[in-house]
Amino acid sequence: MRTASQYQMEPVGVGSRPAQENTVLPFLGRQATVRKAGMVFSQDISEQSWERIGSGLRELTNSSAWWLADWLIFGEAAYSCRRYREAIDRTGLDYQTLRNYAWVARRFEYRRRRADLSFAHHAEVARLSPPEQDYWLRKAQQHKWSRNELRRAVRASLAEQLETPDAATARSGERRAGQMAEQAGGDARREKVATLTIELSTGQLDKYAKVAAAHGLPLEKWVTQILDSADRRVS
């Protein structure tokens, strides 16, 4: 097995034609050469050049998904079903993977695809309506979300939208109960500061205390009941 250092130390151009091959991948420059089974790097490649190649390969990988999808869509439209399937078989490409690519591509006509977001970003929102797709992709651009960050944001939004009516009603009831409890607490606090003073003679106090005791109530509660009863009769 060859190590990374062995790959880096192999001289460019051995058994290859760098200038000709790198016209296909211009971001390689003369720092690396691509072959069918790998990539060979110059021994004096700088870190900056190495990073630039990585960015280029990322873009190439992203674009290739769109390319394969559009290639499949064109073949489906241009050729008979049998010839089309035979052509797919001859390429050796995985048919189901291509179908998945094509499904996403059909959900985004060319003008709506965002080059600064990956194919995977588009796949995350492909099931949504076009306005929703545009909204979430725009958010992903603005916030520089990764594919996973976009997925979490979309799923959280969908979960909120799909909340059952019963759950929504329960949450609304909880809020109303909390508001009523808070209001009742406020009323109770206001009642505590309201004071009613009644002047009674000693004889009246003893008489009313005995009546209240006969009803099994303290004098204060018995008086309150009498006042409430009088209020209901007046009302």
Rank of each mutant, 00 (worst) to 15 (best):
R82W: 04
A214Y: 00
E59C: 09
R106W: 03
S5D: 12
Y135S: 11
Y79V: 15
K207P: 00
R112I: 01
R152A: 11
R52N: 13
G15A: 07
L98W: 13
L128A: 11
E191Y: 03
L196R: 11
M180C: 03
E109Y: 01
K144Q: 15
R127V: 13
I88V: 15
R82N: 12
F119W: 14
F108I: 05
R106I: 00
S201K: 04
P18I: 05
Q204W: 01
D44E: 10
R17S: 12
S146P: 08
E76L: 10
N100S: 10
A209L: 02
A87M: 13
S235Y: 01
Y84D: 11
G13S: 08
D94F: 06
Q141I: 11
L117T: 06
S172Y: 04
R90E: 13
E21L: 13
R52F: 05
K207G: 05
R232P: 00
D166L: 14
A213W: 01
A126V: 09
V211F: 07
V34A: 14
S16P: 00
G56T: 07
A4F: 13
R189K: 13
Q8R: 15
S16G: 08
T169K: 15
L117D: 04
L150C: 02
A65C: 10
G178R: 12
L150F: 04
A212C: 06
P218E: 14
R99I: 11
W71A: 13
T195M: 12
R2G: 02
E124Q: 15
I73H: 01
A120I: 07
S201T: 15
T164H: 10
W145R: 04
M9E: 14
K207C: 10
G75Y: 01
R106P: 00
G13F: 03
A102M: 07
S201E: 02
W145N: 03
M39K: 08
V193K: 14
G54W: 03
P11N: 03
T3K: 04
V34I: 14
Q141A: 10
D94Y: 08
Y110T: 12
V104E: 01
F27D: 09
L162F: 07
R190Y: 00
